[in-house]
Computed example of a mutant assay.
Amino acid sequence: MAKVSISEAARLTGKSRTTLHRLIKTGELSTCAGARNSKMLDTSELIRVFGDISSPVHEQPFEQATEQRVTVPPAHNEQVVNSLKQEIEHLRTLVSAQESHIDSLKQSLHLLEHKKDVQQPLPPPVRWWQFWK
C-alpha cells in the first residue's frame, strides 16, 4: 500500500496529528521511514486501526467554478474600511507632528551653528617673554 505523511494521514482519517502522534508513541500505530528518515504511515496500517479511510478530496479546477460566495457581510467590510481610514488619518497626524518636530530641531541646530560663528575670536597667545611687561 501507499505511504503517507502524518499530516496526510490526519486528513484522511479525520483525526488530529496530536492523536496520531499519541497512538504512535503508545505503539498502537506503527510507522515506517520515509525520505530523510521522516515518519510515514502505511495506508494499510491506517485502515487496520481506524477502519475505512476517506479518499482525498480533489478540488475543482478553476474553470469549473460557477458561483461566488460572500463569506463576510458587507456591513462588516464597511466597518473594517472605516476603522482603517481612521487609523490612516491618525498615522498621518503623527507623521506631520514628527515632521514639525524635525523642522524645529533643524532650526535649533542652525541657530547653534550661527552662534558658534559669531563668538569673539580668542586673543592671541601670550608669549613667555611678554608676561613680564
Rank of each mutant, 00 (worst) to 15 (best):
G14M: 04
S5N: 02
P61W: 01
L20I: 12
G27C: 03
L112V: 04
K39L: 05
Q98C: 03
R127M: 09
P121H: 08
P125N: 06
R22G: 07
T31K: 08
Q107Y: 08
A33H: 11
Q98G: 08
P125F: 04
E28A: 02
S30L: 07
V126C: 07
P74Y: 02
N77A: 08
H101W: 02
L94M: 12
V4M: 01
A97F: 00
I88R: 14
V4C: 01
T43A: 08
K3A: 01
S55D: 12
E67K: 04
G51M: 07
A97W: 03
M1K: 12
A97M: 06
T66V: 00
K133P: 02
G27M: 01
R92S: 10
H110T: 14
Q68Y: 11
V4A: 06
K106P: 03
K85N: 14
I6Q: 01
T66L: 02
L91W: 06
D103S: 13
V126I: 14
Q119G: 03
W129A: 09
R11E: 14
L105M: 14
P124M: 03
K25S: 12
L84M: 10
L122C: 05
L91E: 07
K85E: 14
K85W: 01
A65R: 15
A2G: 06
Q68W: 12
S83D: 11
D117F: 00
T18E: 05
A10M: 01
L23I: 01
P121Q: 09
T26L: 01
E28Q: 13
P125Y: 07
E63Q: 10
S55E: 13
F50D: 09
H90A: 15
K3Y: 03
T13I: 10
F131R: 15
F62Q: 09
L29E: 04
P61D: 13
V81F: 06
S96H: 08
R48H: 09
A75D: 08
D42W: 03
S96E: 15
E28H: 13
K115M: 11
